[in-house]
């Protein structure tokens, strides 16, 4: 029973991280139908930035929640700028070209960013400090959920609520929904599509930065390559849920997180990736548009 509970908490934690990254994939796809393969690298840069800022700010004397939130703030802002620049440099010049062109550009950016961080920072693993202060009220749950796991799930939940409010309630959120339904018509009603695309990249990158900060705390280490597998998994989660659908990305990420956790716990941790991708194949065979995706017909 305790194993089962542990696996549930582990699955929820993994699923939350995947969800934070998967949202960036699904939102960008929803707006410009591009799989942004460099998105995993933004997450990796988020972890690095959080690490660097926590070192600097820690040396300046910041501790506890202040350190966590200021390091998080800088990581989020820094990644937002990365996301914005990435779109302007690698995707915007290719808009209107065949869909393959920006896809190749995305893969190129992914490799570029990995190698850039490897050269500028280090090819080795870096230890990541434990930034999350003790949470007293968790003592009753000792052995079930750690403070880091709790923080990950809580931070993800808060991010989801914030994202939902942003998309439902603000003007730009409304414009994003309009563009994802019909970009041409959105432009004809006066929506500035460049702003909407930039905002989408910025928000996706901010969520990825939160994910990067949290995974650093969870894994106690980071390196230039963490974005690759995490990006792949998050992309899988987005496809599983129905790419382009925001609730779909979250559902897909949780399914993936839980199935990995259970596979690792009940079979062997060697099997967690196998189970994840078998699941992907199985669901796509039965529902090619993903769990929450709707079959769309291409307009001519």
């Amino acid at each position: 029973m305790e194993l089962f509970l542990n696996l549930c908490v582990g699955g929820l934690t993994k699923g939350s991280i995947y969800a934070l990254i998967a949202l960036g994939y699904t939102m960008v796809y929803g707006i410009i139908a591009l799989i942004n393969f460099a998105h995993g690298e933004i997450y990796m840069i988020g972890a690095f930035t959080a690490l660097i800022f926590s070192m600097v700010l820690g040396a300046l004397g910041l501790t506890g929640w202040g350190l966590l939130f200021s390091a998080g703030f800088f990581a989020v802002v820094y990644c937002a700028m990365y996301g914005w620049t990435l779109e302007k440099v690698a995707y915007k010049p290719l808009r209107g070209q065949s869909r393959l062109a920006p896809l190749i550009s995305a893969i190129g950016m992914s490799i570029f960013l990995q190698n850039y961080v490897q050269l500028v920072q280090t090819p080795n693993f870096l230890a990541f400090p434990d930034l999350i202060p003790d949470l007293g009220f968790l003592s009753g749950f000792r052995g079930v959920a750690s403070k880091t796991q709790f923080a990950i799930v809580a931070a993800t939940a808060v991010s989801m609520v914030a994202l939902t409010l942003f998309i439902k309630k603000t003007r730009i959120g409304m414009a994003m929904r309009a563009v994802s339904q019909d970009p041409t018509m959105a432009r004809l009603t006066g929506v500035n599509i460049d702003k909407v695309i930039s905002t989408t990249f910025i928000i996706g990158s901010m969520l990825a930065a939160v994910g990067g900060l949290l995974i650093g705390n969870y894994a106690h280490q980071t390196d230039f390559f963490i974005g690759f597998l995490a990006g792949m998994k998050a992309f899988t989660a987005a496809v599983l849920g129905g790419i382009g659908s925001i609730p779909g990305a979250v559902v897909g990420a949780l399914i993936l997180g839980f199935s990995e956790s259970f596979a690792a716990g009940y079979i062997s941790s060697d099997y967690e990736d196998v189970v994840a991708f078998v699941l992907l194949i199985a669901i796509l065979t039965l529902r090619p548009d993903g769990i929450m995706g709707s079959a769309t017909t291409q307009k001519v």
Binding site: M174, R177, A178, G190, V191
Partner: peptide
């Protein structure tokens, strides 16, 4: 070509916003 999943009001609001001065 309406924004099918938006409400009637939101469809009109989107169009109004092209005239707004306030930015992001």
């Amino acid at each position: 070509r309406l924004f099918n999943n938006l409400t009637v009001l939101e469809n009109v609001l989107i169009a109004c916003h092209s005239r707004m001065k306030a930015g992001i």
